[in-house]
Amino acid sequence: MRNRSMNMNLEQLDTPAAIVDTGKMQRNIDAMQARMNALGVSFRPHVKTTKCVDVVRAQIAAGAQGITVSTLKEAEEFFAAGITDILYAVGMAPAKLPRAMALKQQGCDLKIIADNAAAASAIVDFCRAANDTFDVWLEVDTDGHRSGLAPEDDALLAIGRILHEGGIEVGGVMTHAGSSYELNDSEALAALAEQERAGCVRAAERLRAAGIACRTVSVGSTPTALAAKHLEGVTEVRAGVYVFFDLVMANVGVCDSSDIALSVLTSVIGHQPDKGWVIVDAGWMAMSRDRGTSKQTRDYGYGLACALDGTPLEGCELAGANQEHGILAVTHADDLARRFPIGMKLRILPNHACATGAQYPEYHALMSDGSTEAWRRFHGW
């Protein structure tokens, strides 16, 4: 798959196709790494957004220390590519423990997480039977968004003791302030970043005071990583979508649409002049069904339409999507056939980069000279 599109430009590529603007991507990587360096913490990017070795190598080259994954498939793929320091940041299902142990025994420095007594007990029992161990982190809930243990919850210490007394090292605590995606105010984002930091640090302090080792304090989301004023007590930050950004992040206020590195290349295939529609070949199979901007300050439909050079088109929105048909609603619908001729190529910026990227087996990396290179993207669990 690699290099199949070398030297092809955007006009020559078949559509729909996922395009990564490598210049924008590198600027995003460098800016986040510089911020983490200034805050004095390690950075462990979440690679679920890209699932692409080429992208992650650029993040590591910039200074990232380890990666975060959301599937064991990701862990296996990146370990095979030579990356060993991996946090699997999804609660461990007991049936997956043999697969995780196989990675560890091959030399992967794999960290797994738990947030309940049943999972912790299953890990202890499995490790005793395997005569081996895991580095287990406890997930902390600092904003009520999803999973985890409240910093002051008695269960935090009880689960820590199950692991500790079972011979399992509690290597750290981690949290994810996912509710940051619902904000759009810099002061509110900074306040949530502090809430995230303080809650996770407090959880670590309680564990240490109970005699349970907890060397790592890991926090992060793209908005809170960019909004944090300080990170006292934190050892590392995780963030993922920052590498590409997307329209949800633009609405949150942590990037501009000009920072978005991922787009979908599409072709005009028809017109409905009486409705003010241009039909393109990027439907929801190309863009995903994610409508993450629908509850935000600006609803972009299924994506923001841009010219081939990436310049947003005024008065154009991907307002509807069927499986393979995208409906581009045009405010000024005069002479659509002339303005949007059949075969014309456009680029659509996505609502959610993770969801849109997941529709494709590869990215077409757009280089500074206008050529493209195919970068493999893997998927599955």
Rank of each mutant, 00 (worst) to 15 (best):
M8Y: 13
A18P: 05
A31G: 06
A34I: 04
G40P: 04
S42N: 11
R44L: 02
R44K: 12
T50F: 07
T50M: 07
K51M: 04
V55I: 13
V56S: 02
A58K: 08
A61H: 09
I67W: 00
I67G: 00
S70H: 09
L72N: 06
E77C: 06
A80K: 14
G82I: 08
A93N: 15
K96S: 13
K96P: 05
A100T: 10
A118D: 07
A120K: 01
S121H: 09
S121V: 04
R128A: 15
W137A: 03
V140K: 02
T142M: 06
D153G: 12
A158C: 09
G160V: 09
I162T: 10
G166F: 08
G167E: 06
I168A: 05
E169A: 15
V170H: 01
V170G: 01
G171N: 08
G172P: 01
E187L: 13
A193F: 09
Q195S: 14
R202H: 15
T222N: 07
P223A: 05
L231N: 04
R238E: 07
L247A: 05
L247V: 10
V252L: 12
S263Q: 11
L265C: 11
G270R: 03
P273W: 06
P273N: 13
G283P: 04
R289G: 14
D290H: 15
G292Q: 03
S294C: 12
R298L: 13
D299Q: 07
Y300V: 05
G301C: 03
Y302S: 01
L304Y: 01
C316N: 10
E324F: 13
E324C: 11
G326W: 00
P341F: 11
M344S: 14
L349M: 13
A355D: 11
Y360A: 04
P361Q: 07
Y363I: 01
H364M: 08
T372D: 00
E373F: 02
